[in-house]
Design a protein around this nucleic acid. Sequence first.
DNA 1: CCAGGCTAGTTGATACGTCAACCTTGTCGT
DNA 2: ACGACAAGGTTGACGTATCAACTAGCCTGG
Lengths: 151, 151
Amino acid sequence: MADLTDHQAAAWTSYQRMRVRLSGVLGRELARTTGLSEADFDVLVAVHERPDDSVRALALRCGLEWEKSRLSHQLRRMEQRGLITRETCEEDSRGSVVRLTPRGRELACEARKHYDEAVQRYVMDSLTPEQLSALAEIADTLLDRIEITHK
Amino acid sequence: MADLTDHQAAAWTSYQRMRVRLSGVLGRELARTTGLSEADFDVLVAVHERPDDSVRALALRCGLEWEKSRLSHQLRRMEQRGLITRETCEEDSRGSVVRLTPRGRELACEARKHYDEAVQRYVMDSLTPEQLSALAEIADTLLDRIEITHK
DNA sequence: CCAGGCTAGTTGATACGTCAACCTTGTCGT
DNA sequence: ACGACAAGGTTGACGTATCAACTAGCCTGG
């Protein structure tokens, strides 16, 4: 197996730096404007997308592609801060149903607004339509690749 | 400020999924083959690139673009595991100098090999040269953008 | 129907990251 | 020369991520 070429290594470095910086600024933007972490945000948005602002924990877990213990810890903290509630599930009493509190709903909307605006500002405003399409295509290609070699 | 278009939102989602999956597989690859975390790896490689396998903590911090407390915590853990040592700096007794232990050096080389091979396998093998160049250009564009709006 | 295994979720331990407070040492203006 | 301030690092507290072990409810073959 040959080493990476200089060109490849440079591209990889740029990607890594971009990745770190980007989640840095987006995360700080969220924290500053709403006091939420990205994990909080992901959960709130995912739940808010469901009818009734409530969803089975299992479905949430699959949608987010999170470890079950990660979700469990995160939900515990969010419940303590009054963003969500947890009830035991009707159909399967092993399961639990997550529901947004009014405060959770409010923050979800607020955060979504700020977040999208930041993505617009930091990403969409800088890339040409061709670049954006190229990025999507690259991402989907790599996702397929990972999927395949890991199944 | 207009909402993101469907196309933009889809591209962003793909990027996010790719980002998460990719660091997931690369991280697990490192852990499996060498027992190192990505943080360990970044430090070991950065130090190993220096003459004498040693470097001023400050320089390391700048190179990695890490918070100072992050580096401090990380170095403490790595010192405990026998990967590095810390001595007080000659020229400036506030500072400290990080040095690889033999074991640290060995792991740095081993890990570098596995990591590059994984990048090759998961990324380079799937992308056309055009896609790779496009990715690098996108990353550099966004890095500039973040740099500018944040200075 | 019931024993084994499977599944949903929780818990505890440990590692990682960030923030703010702190300590020590250098530096610079006066 | 000295006092204030800045810089390099450490520490503690807290939130976050992962792994492994566990609990409890469901389901299926015999």
